[in-house]
Design a protein around this nucleic acid. Structure first.
Lengths: 147, 147
DNA sequence: GTTTATGCAAAACATTTGCATAGTC
DNA sequence: GACTATGCAAATGTTTTGCATAAAC
């Protein structure tokens, strides 16, 4: 499993630069931290990991990344919203409730189903938000071994 | 369109009583207000509508109702969580982005689809959260007339 | 009379904003 | 040098909590 954190962080920074945002050291620290994250996180968690970076900068950077489409918010089962590095465009997440990792779900053909259901309710569909919860493969393996 | 607010409010109150919670006048005020709501709402909005009821009571009542399963939280497109009177048990919402009304969606067979997709990702499905956004029938009519 | 609920104010969080200073391009 | 970004502290907004008082059963 090669560590691709650095290149990932670089990609994030480039995304920001393409949009006219400057490459500053606090921002590099933020994208590095995000790239090193293996699960969803909150702004405060990130702030805790980066004592040298001000809160406002954390929040502002996260907003820029979300606006750029490289970071998205995920809804946990309990209703908390966390951040999560992600694919651009529309997609969903398979969120592991054990370890907090997540897999992006592309090309999910839920649209057709929703279209049908919506039509039955005379509802003009325009969008949806779906989160899927469960256990990832690694956590299932870990449990199997533990037993 | 008969007003069923009062009986609805009574039902809510009975639900709380069945669970051992007392019938008090602040609580009656809260369930009445909720029953009269025609769209999703926030705790603060409710507090604004009930000047005589303390904030803490509002928050505590909402929590009891959510725990009882008669009230649920809905996620708006922008990521805000509001409250919404609802059916018990698992269901989804068709949320109108125009007027904020919502229809409960029961018996949506999204489970099978998710099961298949999850299996393909070696993911053990345990739950999901789905919100559907669009325009309700009334709002579509209203627009048609306006044009 | 015992137990639960309320209201208030304070506390605890989470997020945003104004502004002077510092860094980038 | 012009413009953007930062850090801090203050402001804002939301939700929770402690506690003395009041109401319900």
């Amino acid at each position: 499993m090669p560590k691709r954190s650095s290149s990932l962080a670089t990609q994030l920074l480039e995304t920001l630069e393409e949009r006219g945002h400057r490459s500053t050291s606090p921002r590099r620290a933020v994208v590095n931290a995000i790239a090193g994250q293996n699960k969803h996180f909150t702004a405060e968690e990130l702030h805790g990991q980066l004592p040298g970076v001000g809160r406002a900068t954390i929040y502002r950077s996260l907003k820029l990344l979300v606006d750029s489409g490289v970071l998205c918010r995920v809804l946990l089962e309990e209703g908390d919203l966390h951040y999560q590095l992600s694919h651009r465009g529309h997609h969903h997440h398979l969120l592991c409730v054990e370890c907090g990792s997540s897999q992006d779900l592309l090309g999910c053909d839920i649209e057709d189903l929703l279209q049908t259901v919506s039509a039955a309710h005379k509802f003009q569909l325009s969008g949806h938000w779906l989160e899927v919860y469960g256990k990832c493969h690694d956590c299932m393996d870990r449990e199997a071994v533990a037993v």
